[in-house]
Each structure stands twice: as structure tokens, then as C-alpha cells.
Design a protein around this nucleic acid. Structure first.
Length: 501
RNA sequence: GGUCAUGUGGCCGAGUGGUGAGGCACAGGUCUGCAAAACCUUAUACGGCGGUUCAAAUCCGUCCAUGACCUCCA
């Protein structure tokens, strides 16, 4: 039973073998901090966070590198080349780095709300200009890039011609054939500097108005988008590392260009396994700026958006994302998120009850069939994750276990139905998966126990009131606590429990 | 136009050719001072048409539909 991952490069599920076990290097393309993150951005970061956590669970020592793009990309496409970040900074009357800092902070805040672990290294593009320039120099020296008017372009045609023979044509990842692209690419303006349309910029000369600019051997300018990832992944993970991740929309051109750059510099395919998450859609359409259907994370958390009927907790979104496989599209809707919200609640109640209860199980199983079923469901967690991180299947199993737990809780089946060892296994693996691997967190207050004590007191008073059929008092306690977001529930044997929303 | 995906019940979503994952919603029931929760039961499905097979949601062909990428994009 070993981990299999779907490698976009070969388009098949393959065994995962680290280059230098137990060490694993993983690079994931991070955000461009020129604006607020939206729901779509949440997916890769949650997906790869779970992958990061699972690799550690398997015992690997993982160095997880996720960059921050803060240098600003150039835009072409009929517009004047311009630095996105500095343009917006002018509009907002901010220093570019102030803008970058603002959105970086927001991004980090959102990541922690999602309970994503911080990556091992989070390098910034602006902090690695020197490395990028060094890499560009090397590419020029090898003859795969040329200088034009202070800008440097990668010569895709030459690369493709030379490396096709070595079995690594340009387009190897995305399946694109360069010749087709040449025929079908739209007519672009301001392309006269490039020898071919498919050439991409390694370095862009900065127009006089540009605020973000650096000295280079080719004049003042700023780095192209693709080179930062190549420079930083090489610096921190080496010329060849294990996993490169990101959204499917980055396959082309971004990752394709990274492959070309790194291959020229290091004579190696940079990463062995290329993992790509699919998009989050809304009404069947990808969520993205160009579609004008973006729901920002701040809006999602507050519910302040026309498309939202309510606010959603970050954990609801995390759960929602884990309920589908990362390579499939996932369609956003209020109904779907509300379903996730309820499912999560159900999960927490069963989970906390089990962790806090003192049930021990029997010396042997009272019902071997059920006991075996529980063991099987738990054992399958790892198998599901080993099958290209099938979090949806793990959750399905967990919910089957929730039913069993609830049956024990309600005494429909006695605790001795399960063997003590099975109960322990269940406790241990549910914790490992729900908290450690899936990174789900409940809002259950982790204070010093004062609130817990107060609530217990209220529940005791309510119990006494009920005992003397003083339902006015007992309902008052329940209703007023409910108004504060604390839900009381009567249990079958006269006990009581609470949930905090 | 090129490349690559996808089409599963009211909704969201797994799925290894053979006894209908799971979640939410719905219906009936149990429990309950009431409520909520929980539990039990039941229902609804694999885009169309062919083919392979004893057997297909699962394999093959074809058609239809949708989406992504080809331009910044998670």
C-alpha cells in the first residue's frame, strides 16, 4: 500500500517515490498579492495543505515552498506593457510595497482562518531578483534567450527544436504542439521585439513611469512572471525536486515555461510529479476576474455579497473543498455550502462525543460483523488517501462511522458491541484524519474552562427545573442560550449537551 | 480552430465491470413536556444511440451538451 499520485506530466496515476526519501520537496505557486484572494484561490492552498499534512503523516520530512508574487507581472495583449502592481498602487495612492504588504497580510489572515499550515519557506519574488537575473544570464549564455530593447525573451522555437529530440518538447506538460499554437495564436500588438509570438519574457524593460524596477545587465526593469518560480524552486529545493503543484490554469503557459527555463539552466526536468487542482466554478463557470464572478474570501466570511444568502465559516469551505476530489471541478452554490455546514456540525458532535466519552468497548467484540466493518472503514482511510488523495471517500467512510458512533451514543447498540481495541483505533484515527490531516477545527471554545463551568451550571439548573416540571424556567434557559448561539440538547437518559455555533 | 477535461438521483458529490459511497433536502416511523438532535425505514441515478461481455455508471465507438486552456489567472 503505497501512495499513488496523478502526474499531469504523464497523465497517469503513478507510485510516488521521493528522490531522496524521507525528504520531500514540494513547490506550490502562491498568490499574486495585487488584490484580495477569492474563493477560487482557497482551493489550491487547502488542497496542497492537506497533501503537505498527509505526506508528514506518512513520515516524510517535507520542505513545502510556496511563493508570494509581489513583483507584478507585465501585461501585453494589445495593452502597453505595464506592471500590474504599480499601476494599481497609483490608483490607490499607495506605495507598491505598501499595497503588497496589505494584501500579503490579508492573504496570511485568510490562510490561518482556513487553518492552513504555514509553508516551510515562503519566498517573495522581490527578494530573489538576484537569483532571477543569474538564471536569465545563464539562459542567454546557453543561447536560449535574446535581448531586445532592454528586455529579454526566451526563444521557444529554438528550445522546442533542440529539446524535442531529447523527448522534451515545449508543450510537454500541457499537450500543446508549438506549431499549432503559432497558427492559432491571435494577432498581438507590440510584439515586434519578439522573434516569435510564443516567446515569453524573462525580463521586461521598465517604462519611465514604472515604480517597481531593478537594475539589471540589460537596463532597469522587472522580472517576467515565470522566472521567479524557477529561480526560487531551484534555490530552495534543488535542480530536481519531487512535487510541483498549482491550479490547472497554470499548466499553460506558466508551468510549461518553468519547465523550459529550468531545463535549459539545470539540464533537468525540475519536478518529478506535477499535481494540479481543478477550478471552483460558480454556475458552471470558472471563478475569475475576467468572468466577473469573484467572491472574495472576506465576503464569504461575512456573507456580504449578492450571490451569498449567508456567511460561511472558513471550516465550512474547507470541508466543502475536501468533499470533492481535487482534480474535479467543484461548483459553488449556497445549497452546497449549507449542506457542508450541516454535515460538519453532525461530524463534530459525534466526534467530540466519542473523544470525551469514557466508553471502552468490550474485551472482545460483541458483534464481530459490525466490529469488522468499523475496522475496515478506518483502515480504508489510508488507502483512499494513497489513491491520489481521495478525501471525498475518506469523508464518506467517516460519516458511516458517525452513524455507528451515534448509535452507541444513543444506546441503540451497546458499547461492548465493539472491541476495546477498535474503539481506540477509531478515536486515534478520527483524530489523525479530522484534525491533523484534514486540518478541520471546530469553534469549540478552548478557554480555561470558565465558560464550560458556567454552561454546566446552567444545564444543572435547567435539569432541576425540568425535574419539577418548571418548563417556563427550563425553556427560558434553553431559548436565551440559543439566542446567544449556544444550543442545548436534551438527551435520552436525562442528560444534556451543548453546541456553540 | 487547436489542446485537454467533464456529463451520476431534487441539490452537491465518490465510484475498483457483478448485492445502489457519502452529505444535504424530502417522506414515513421511534424517542421526547415541547424543541432540537439522533436512530430506523423508504424513494429517486448513471447525457443519447450502438457495440464488447454471462454481466457496464464502469470498457470500445459515435453523437450531443458543458467547461477549462490557447491572454493575466488558483
Amino acid at each position: 500500500m503505497s501512495l499513488k499520485v496523478y502526474n499531469s506530466l504523464t497523465r497517469e496515476k503513478v507510485n510516488f517515490t521521493p528522490i531522496n526519501a524521507p525528504y520531500v520537496g514540494m513547490y506550490v505557486c502562491g498568490p499574486t498579492v495585487s488584490g484580495e484572494s477569492h474563493l477560487g484561490h482557497a482551493r489550491p492552498f487547502i488542497t496542497f495543505d492537506v497533501i503537505f499534512r498527509y505526506l508528514m503523516y506518512l513520515g516524510y520530512k517535507v520542505r513545502y515552498v510556496r511563493n508570494i508574487t509581489d513583483a507584478g507581472h507585465f501585461e501585453e495583449e494589445g495593452r502597453e506593457a505595464e506592471d500590474k502592481i504599480s499601476k494599481k498602487a497609483v490608483l490607490e495612492k499607495l506605495e507598491p510595497m505598501e499595497l503588497v504588504q496589505k494584501y500579503t497580510n490579508l492573504y496570511h489572515w485568510a490562510m490561518s482562518r482556513f487553518n492552513n499550515l504555514p509553508p516551510s519557506i515562503e519566498p517573495t519574488a522581490t527578494g530573489h531578483i538576484i537569483e532571477q537575473i543569474a538564471m536569465i544570464k545563464k539562459i542567454i549564455a546557453d543561447g536560449y534567450a535574446y535581448v531586445a530593447n532592454g528586455s529579454v525573451y526566451f526563444d521557444v522555437e529554438k528550445y522546442n527544436a533542440d529539446f524535442s529530440q531529447k523527448g522534451q518538447p515545449y508543450g510537454i506538460l500541457s499537450g500543446r504542439i508549438l506549431d499549432d499554437q503559432l497558427e492559432t495564436t491571435r494577432e498581438l500588438e507590440n510584439q515586434e521585439e519578439k522573434r516569435n509570438r510564443s516567446d515569453f519574457a524573462l525580463w521586461k524593460s521598465a517604462a519611465p513611469g514604472h515604480i517597481m524596477r531593478w537594475q539589471s545587465p540589460w537596463g532597469e526593469g522587472f522580472p517576467g512572471w515565470h522566472i521567479e518560480c524557477s529561480a526560487m524552486s531551484t534555490k530552495y529545493l534543488g535542480e530536481e525536486f519531487d512535487i510541483h503543484g498549482g491550479g490547472m490554469d497554470l499548466q499553460f503557459p506558466h508551468h510549461e515555461c518553468e519547465i523550459a527555463q529550468s531545463t535549459v539552466c539545470n539540464h533537468k526536468m525540475p519536478a518529478r510529479y506535477w499535481l494540479h487542482n481543478n477550478m471552483i466554478t460558480i454556475n458552471g463557470k470558472k471563478m475569475g476576474k475576467s468572468y466577473n464572478n469573484v467572491i472574495r474570501l472576506t465576503e464569504l466570511f461575512t456573507g456580504d455579497h449578492p450571490a451569498l444568502t449567508q456567511a460561511y465559516h472558513p471550516m465550512t469551505i474547507r470541508f466543502f473543498i475536501l468533499q470533492s476530489h481535487y482534480r474535479g471541478t467543484l461548483d459553488f452554490s449556497n445549497e452546497a455550502l449549507q449542506a457542508s455546514e450541516k454535515a460538519m456540525k453532525r461530524l463534530w458532535e459525534a466526534y467530540y462525543w466519542l473523544q470525551q466519552s469514557d466508553i471502552k468497548g468490550g474485551a472482545t467484540a460483541g458483534d464481530a460483523a459490525l466490529d469488522n466493518k468499523v475496522k475496515r472503514l478506518v483502515d480504508e482511510f489510508d488507502e483512499c488517501m494513497n489513491d491520489d488523495f481521495n478525501t471525498a471517500k475518506v469523508l464518506a467512510n467517516i460519516f458511516e462511522l458517525v452513524s455507528v458512533i451515534n448509535s452507541v451514543k444513543d444506546k441503540h447498540i451497546p458499547a461492548e458491541t465493539l472491541a476495546g481495541s477498535t474503539v481506540e483505533l477509531l478515536r486515534k484515527q478520527l483524530k489523525a484524519y479530522i484534525e491533523d490531516i484534514f486540518g478541520l477545527q471546530s469553534d469549540r471554545v478552548a478557554d480555561d474552562g470558565k465558560l464550560e463551568g458556567v454552561l454546566q451550571l446552567l444545564m444543572d439548573i435547567r435539569k432541576e427545573a425540568k425535574g419539577r416540571k418548571d418548563f417556563v424556567t427550563s425553556d427560558k434557559i434553553r431559548n436565551e442560550l440559543a439566542a446567544l448561539g449556544v444550543q442545548l440538547k436534551d438527551e435520552k437518559d436525562g442528560g444534556m449537551s451543548y453546541t456553540i455555533n
